[in-house]
């Protein structure tokens, strides 16, 4: 029972921790709630603030191979989740699940990635109506 309660608390906290994703730039461009899974080959992994980027080539159903650029949170937020500067190298075959942008361009934010060795790196929870951030009301 105790473990169950803790897991509920942990899940709630993960939601909170997920909120800062895209905090710097906003999520207006994202097709929030939509998930796309792509298999591709890493071309570059950029470990930088305020967001890290994973770039990879994938045949995404458009009939051509496109170079995708998808983002995570900052290194400070990703490190506790097991991500690092060396998580990817060019040539890695990865399976990437993302929330894409609305306009069809090959960009989005990462939800999770499955590495060549089968390890799953989780970046964020999918956006749901319940997890969308709500502006706090100022205290008078």
């Amino acid at each position: 029972m105790k473990k169950t309660l803790f897991d509920i608390l942990a899940a709630a906290a993960l939601l909170l921790v997920s909120v800062p994703l895209l905090a710097h730039h906003g999520a207006a461009a994202l097709d929030t709630g939509k998930e796309v899974t792509l298999k591709g080959t890493v071309t570059e992994w950029i470990w930088s603030n305020p967001h890290c980027f994973l770039k990879f080539d994938a045949n995404d159903g458009t009939g051509t191979v496109r170079n995708w650029a998808v983002e995570t949170q900052s290194p400070t937020s990703m490190t506790p989740r097991g991500w690092s500067r060396t998580s990817f190298k060019a040539g890695d075959e990865v399976t990437v699940t993302i929330e894409p942008v609305k306009n069809g361009q090959p960009i989005g934010r990462i939800l999770h990635v499955i590495l060549p060795n089968g390890q799953k790196l989780i970046a964020a929870n999918p956006t749901t109506p319940e997890s969308r951030p709500v502006a706090p009301v100022p205290v008078q």
């Binding site: 730039h25 207006a28 461009a29 650029a69 942008v101 306009n103 361009q105 960009i107």
Partner: peptide, 8 residues
């Protein structure tokens, strides 16, 4: 990489 392509 992101913003210039994400505009709606």
């Amino acid at each position: 990489e992101i913003a210039s392509q994400a505009k709606t």
